[in-house]
Simulated assay, not measured.
Amino acid sequence: MSRTRRSLLAALPLAACLVLAGCGSDSEPQVTWSAGEASATVGPAQFCDLTMKDCTNDEAARALLPVPAGTPVEVTVPDEVSGAPWSVVFSYTGPDGQRTDGRSPVFAPDARTSYTLTLPEPGDVLGTAQVQLLGAAPVADPGTGEIAFPARATWVLVAHQ
């Protein structure tokens, strides 16, 4: 086998890795939000390493989408997110003007790459939503007894009518 051919064959796995899996890429995962005909892909507003010690924040990282009352919102996450526990937290306003906070189920690693957020009533208006990539194990707040889910990364949607 010629030297050129051996060099080319040796380079193929690296090239495939770079093209198919993004090996060596320092870019942070992107999440896509879709509502009706509109969609936006955005990077994380907050992103921490696995130890949750090295974190970056980008306050400008948010998707702005028109989401009319009663419109479901589809969120699609990449393998880097779906490979760990994740969930969607959200706030909406009902027809009575009352703001309500909610949370999807926590999705197990590799269980799914998308979620459709549908509010309880047709007149409910979504305000914000976040994909949360969960880090450390959930803990109970000693004061309230509520369970806190430490997020190591978040992707934000700000809805408007």
Rank of each mutant, 00 (worst) to 15 (best):
V31M: 15
L14F: 04
L119T: 11
G83S: 12
M52F: 02
T144I: 03
V73I: 05
Y115F: 09
Q98D: 03
F90Q: 03
S114A: 14
L20D: 06
C48F: 10
G43I: 05
L8R: 14
A84N: 09
Q161N: 12
V89H: 03
L50G: 09
V67N: 06
V77N: 02
V125R: 12
L18M: 15
T100H: 13
A40Q: 11
G102D: 01
P29Y: 10
F107E: 01
L8F: 07
R152T: 01
L50N: 15
A15M: 15
T118P: 09
D96Q: 14
S87V: 08
P95I: 07
A61R: 14
Y115Q: 01
G36F: 04
T56K: 11
R112Q: 15
D26C: 09
S34H: 11
S7Q: 13
D26W: 12
N57R: 12
G102R: 07
S104H: 04
Q46P: 00
T4Y: 05
D110M: 02
R103T: 04
Q132W: 06
L20R: 12
M1P: 07
G36T: 06
A10G: 13
V31Q: 08
S25V: 02
P95E: 13
D58S: 14
L64F: 02
S34F: 00
C48S: 02
T154Y: 04
G36N: 05
A137I: 00
R3D: 15
W86M: 00
W86Q: 00
P13N: 08
S7G: 07
G43F: 10
C48I: 01
E28D: 14
G123W: 14
L117P: 05
D110E: 08
D141H: 14
A21L: 09
A140H: 01
C23V: 04
A45K: 15
S25Y: 09
D96C: 01
A21T: 03
V131S: 12
V139H: 15
T144S: 15
